[in-house]
Design a protein around this nucleic acid. Structure first.
Lengths: 119, 119
DNA sequence: TATAAATATTTACAGAGGTTAATGTAATGG
DNA sequence: CCATTACATTAACCTCTGTAAATATTTATA
């Protein structure tokens, strides 16, 4: 029963989640969500050496998260599936809420410390 | 402009996406989505030493992806936000589609090879 | 053909992070 | 008070992986 789930999650990790585990690759995906770009543009915008960008793009390509089309010597990269951004936006909403909660907790602690001071 | 996006994605990576980059942690999240469990249960079901599970739970706790409540010596862990699973399911749907496409490509290649053989 | 531009690949290196064993801590029962 | 159970922490080891430099490949152009 569960070995089915195990296998699927193993693939989910190897093919997608691991690819999302790097900040540069997240940035690449968000930039490609705005519009297609070539390798040089990405290298400039992320202030990162071109071979590094190519390396990350290779990983994203192998996992079918981006698509490439070549025109002459220029390689244009596109987002393969918008649902990646949808998923990342979902995770960002979780992030915002958890930050908000932590801010509230900090405020509460500060208030409590203030009360203890006046006692 | 973009430095705003850069910062937010940096946080998204440090707090959430990096946490999803390990298969054991993905499994823990999916198991907790079924029902709350304690550390021992997770260690048994994932066939993993207890300190390893504790380590992963610490990471998930620090990033507000799971919640803990203690009853005596037993620590019960719960999913903090169901949207994590929603996001992961979205990614799984991408995975399924990309696998389907690859299967079609493989079939197409096989067909083509067969045609070349008969020529 | 020679040169330049754009991208990919290879190699080596360094750092981050997962695993394990040993140890520490806290709560429960005898 | 001691032993046990359940979990957390620490430290050492090791693998994985991101980075950068050098090189290779491909295409266009003179």
């Amino acid at each position: 029963m569960d070995s089915q789930l195990f296998q699927e999650i193993e693939m989910l990790h190897q093919r997608i989640c691991q690819a999302l585990g790097d900040p540069k690759r997240l940035m690449i995906l968000y930039l490609l969500n705005q519009r297609p770009r070539n390798v040089g543009e990405l290298a400039l915008e992320l202030e990162t050496p071109q071979p590094t960008i190519s390396h990350h793009l290779k990983i994203l390509r192998e996992r079918s998260l981006v698509k490439m089309r070549k025109e002459g010597t220029i390689a244009y990269y596109t987002l393969a599936d918008v649902r990646v951004i949808e998923a990342l936006d979902l995770l960002r909403s979780i992030l915002r809420d958890s930050i908000a909660v932590q801010a509230q907790l900090a405020e509460f602690s500060a208030l409590k410390a203030e009360q203890n001071d006046t006692e």
